[in-house]
Amino acid sequence: MILKMISFELYKIFKKWRTYIGFLALSIFIPILIYGVSEGGNHYQRILDRNMGDQFLIVGNLVNGWYVAFITIQAMIIHIPFFITLVAGDLFAGEGSAGTYRMLITRPIRRETIVVAKYIAGFIYALVFIVFFGLISTFPAIYFLGTGDLIVPLEKIIVIPSNEIYWRFLLAYFSSFISMCLVVSLAALFSSLVNNAIGPIVGTMAVIVIFLILGELPFELFEKISPYLFTKYMTVWIDSFDYPVDFSRILKSYAVLIGHGILFFAITLLNFRKKDILI
């Protein structure tokens, strides 16, 4: 039954227009980004050349497909949770607003099965979205801009040799998937509490944005609470581009994210088991 429920949930997800907003947005944004970088004459390379002065030369294809893929992830850090939330926020609330809870719950299915199926369907959607994101942000960029080492211009400047890039990107996308599973969990929790998807979408994004801002404020109080904000761990994907990769840090982030995900799931389950379907 659970498999049928999951396939049913997935069918519903992929029959809705809102599901494709994220795919559409990426399909528009990423080609523009690639075009901008290739036609814009390697803006970053030019800045770097200028900053190097006359005495130094930059060697290698710096602004390549991998670099674009990397800045795409960086650029989409806020947007991807939004696209995920658009769908996950509707998982339960969509049934409420459409009145289909009544159809669903009067069937001989345990409510726990419904919750599990909806969560798994949400995770699968997140996986599909991240895979799509990974494919669309790497393949066209590599096709147009080529490959080479990847420069990661963050707090540290890390240059990742080309032979290490594949597994690092795979790890980054997997980490993004884990983060997005948490977004699914949170949005689904909010979704199970109300009967309109707007609340969960806005609520989830508000939590993420507020936590990100709080975690960044350079005041002692906020620096102290920062480790307790799960959003701090949602950027775990970026650790894939550290040198050397701190796997213990990544695993710790996974543990925090999965732990929060389980907590949100448990609250949803407990609430939904006893929830009166009044609409």
């Binding site: 130094f56 030369l57 080479g148």
Partner: peptide, 9 residues
């Protein structure tokens, strides 16, 4: 080179 590096002229 396929690699990235900074070298003096």
């Amino acid at each position: 080179s396929d690699n990235f590096m900074i070298i003096p002229r």
